[in-house]
Nucleic acid binder design. Structure first.
Length: 314
DNA sequence: GAACTATCCTGGGTGC
DNA sequence: TGCACCCAGGATAGTT
């Protein structure tokens, strides 16, 4: 399931291939993959053909390609989306939903195939808006030359919080928001308006690393515990990124169709019935938010705040 | 307004 | 072998 590390791997693969390339063709094989495209802004293909792509940018699980206009091609992989680079004439990938044909100044013609089994992902062309804080809209890997697109963000992504490996991410703002959440900590981690890029897998892994029960009320965490959790989130995301992301099956691959290796490093997710690496207690899987939650019932205990100790982290 | 739930969607796995 | 059913989960609209 593509979460932040998997999307970043895709972004890194796309960047050299699409930057400065011009879109010369668009083929939509399944209109459902345009669910997030607002037709009022114009037909999908019409807004792309003839436009030059300026970069590949990511915030959380959203990826976008700023165009030489006031718009961007927004890509969300959903659960099973893949962006694959192919040579023109290559056999169609299974579940191919959309194909872009690009002309790159040095690489020549190239196909960008959007493949999606479950059609939870999408492509859309959206208008760019200025970021509310004036800071870069997302991570592009380009720290130097300032361009207009850098402090802009697609309108449909503007409500998404910054992700924890974004240099502009504010830990203080995150702790403050957490302290006001009456919900469980895992639900808070999955709330993309609070902190982005974390999905079910990395939420379980971070909570395991920080020894926090998934239903622990977010507001009950001390500042020290919240700091530990944020550090665990960052460590796990960086490790997953270094290992090319998490692949269980063919549902996640990079732009060249290669799988990541982080699935071998998982300590909690998908390990129900296996012993905890710390204490040997069997990892448990419980139903949570229409999905699974994996944890060690010994290391990750639900604790009640002591009288007088509850309240926002200080 | 916040918290929570249902819905979208389909290939693969399992059981009969 | 073939069929029916269940499972996975990100984003968001709808409900409480």
């Amino acid at each position: 399931m593509p979460e932040l590390p998997e999307v970043e791997v895709v972004r890194r693969g796309l960047q050299p291939a699409v930057t400065n390339a011009v879109v010369t063709g668009v083929e939509v094989f399944d209109e459902r993959s345009l669910r997030r495209h607002a037709p009022a802004g114009g037909a999908f293909a019409e807004q792309l053909v003839g436009r030059r792509i300026l970069a590949a940018v990511r915030r959380g699980k959203f990826l976008w390609l700023p165009l030489e206009s006031d718009r961007a091609l927004v890509i969300h992989l959903g659960m099973s989306g893949q962006v694959l680079l192919r040579n023109p004439g290559a056999a169609d990938d299974r579940m191919l939903r959309i194909r872009l044909t690009l002309e790159h100044p040095s690489r020549g013609e190239l196909w960008v195939n959007f493949v999606d089994q479950r059609i939870f992902g999408s492509m859309a062309v959206d208008t760019m808006v200025a970021t509310s804080d004036g800071l870069p809209g997302g991570y592009s890997g380009m720290a130097t030359a300032h361009a207009v697109w850098q402090d802009h963000i697609p309108g449909q992504v503007a409500h998404i919080a910054r992700d924890p490996i974004d240099p502009s991410f504010s830990a203080r703002a995150f702790f403050t928001a957490l302290a006001q959440k009456k919900t469980g900590i895992k639900r808070a981690l999955l709330d993309q308006n609070l902190i982005s890029g974390i999905g079910n897998i990395y939420a379980d892994e971070a909570l395991f690393a920080a020894r926090i029960h998934y239903e622990q009320p977010a507001a009950s965490l001390s500042r020290a515990k919240a700091t530990t959790l944020l550090a665990a989130v960052r460590t796990i995301l960086h490790r997953a990124l270094a290992e090319g992301g998490t692949s269980f099956d063919a549902q996640y691959v990079n732009v060249n169709g290669q799988a990541g290796y982080f699935a071998h490093s998982l300590e909690a997710y998908g390990r129900q019935g296996h012993p905890c690496s710390r204490c040997g207690t069997l990892i448990v899987r419980e139903q949570f938010m229409n999905r699974g939650s994996h944890f060690c019932p010994h290391c990750q205990r639900l604790t009640r705040p002591r009288p007088g100790s509850e309240g926002p982290p200080r």
